[in-house]
Write a protein that binds this DNA or RNA. Sequence first.
DNA 1: CGATAATTGATTGAAAATGATTAGAAGTGC
DNA 2: GCACTTCTAATCATTTTCAATCAATTATCG
Lengths: 257, 257
Amino acid sequence: MNDHRLLTPEREEKILDLLRETTVLTVAELSDTLGVSPATIRRDLQSMHERKLLERVRGGATLRRMTRVEPLFHDKQSQNTAAKQAIATAALKLVEDHDRIYLDGGSTILMLARLLEARHDLTVVTNSLMAAAELMTCEHLLILVGGEFRALSRTLVGPLTTPVVQSVHVDKAFMGTIGFTLKDGMTTTDPSEAFTKERVMERANQVILLADSSKLGVPSFTRSGVIEDVDVLVTDAIDNSLKKELESLGIEVIVAD
Amino acid sequence: MNDHRLLTPEREEKILDLLRETTVLTVAELSDTLGVSPATIRRDLQSMHERKLLERVRGGATLRRMTRVEPLFHDKQSQNTAAKQAIATAALKLVEDHDRIYLDGGSTILMLARLLEARHDLTVVTNSLMAAAELMTCEHLLILVGGEFRALSRTLVGPLTTPVVQSVHVDKAFMGTIGFTLKDGMTTTDPSEAFTKERVMERANQVILLADSSKLGVPSFTRSGVIEDVDVLVTDAIDNSLKKELESLGIEVIVAD
DNA sequence: CGATAATTGATTGAAAATGATTAGAAGTGC
DNA sequence: GCACTTCTAATCATTTTCAATCAATTATCG
């Protein structure tokens, strides 16, 4: 009956129909069934994928991703991974069961978040969407501060974070930073982010700063906290004189290895 | 029927299926059953382990001890997909450039979120982590309400959402629901979620309810809003008498196709 | 009918997945 | 502790799949 070649919309409809039956189809199968070249099928699949009608996988297509849904928040592989991993592991020792803790943004703290499964019954407050995604599937109580989303750091920042931050009270705040110097304290690139960091540290019993050695002695743009805010510094390597100075200010320095 | 080589997602799905039956599988067994080399199986297992879909053990793999909440969400999403897609597409027409909108949780609204790239310079407020993940990479200003994370719906709920919700004001709120009846209005399963929905609708100029026909006339557990809160209902099919009644209450009914 | 635009299929180099191989790590038995 | 086996992670060649390009065909519009 249909001896004319299928037009694009017909083909698309057909592809969707077939997919609904089998959930997975290869390019070769489609090219075969519909009697068009693989190149055309690929073009169709790409266009339909862009319109979110299906999910493209290597070799074919499927309806909405079945298993490969997880990495919603991708972790752009960061640098200095080994050092950060060591720092996170050392920081985990500071977390006890039933603690109420705050997690700041940053890749070091993200690694700490991944380790938190080892503890029980935590209350975790965070402004980091990456950390939240990580903790989504675990048993702990997870609270997100609200606020404006900052794409670069994937955190929630700005004045809208204040109400939630101020209505909770945490035992320990695990903070990240871009720069850390004796003179300027903690510094970061974005004023909104700095604002939120300061509000958080005001409300924490204990402030634990996680900063690998590349951050120490290097200032960034805007102040996000004075040095007196910090109670504990966890790092991977530190100049001995700096360590002494910090300790004379009452800051505990933990060197991870 | 399917004689093609298995595509990656098929293999993964199959591995999970097998695991659900036997709880533990060796690399050799899997390689045998799926007809691929042990090297490939190892690569699959590692990738799936990183996505936390299974637990790796020496010589093979096993399911994680905790049953995952994941499938619940996906099941919901996979039901009635065509209808939801149509509803989302129709709802998109109600969004204009520069609008300030609120996005509720739920799979229908998630689909709408995916379409928002077609608009410019929106301010999007949401309590849905899935929607946030979707909008993370786009140009719009994204604001998350804070609050307690509810795993089942992947939304932020409860009293901590109030401050952010009350300090912003949106033109249009796109809401989802579990049940919708003339008598009870909108109903949902979780009181905390209902609480947040009600606070949101108080603060929106216009409330647009997205509900496929399976929700209409079906009540759920707890009230999340009265019928007068709704300004527009977008659905895929509706009984004519119900439509008339809603319209007599001043509710605009849009039927997508 | 003719000109232009869109779609298609073939070709190509690049990218990704796979399977085989190997050196080293981890487990097992003595 | 030591030899022995098993498993793993890394590397490389091979195969498969992909995106880009171009020519040929088909559709569209004046």
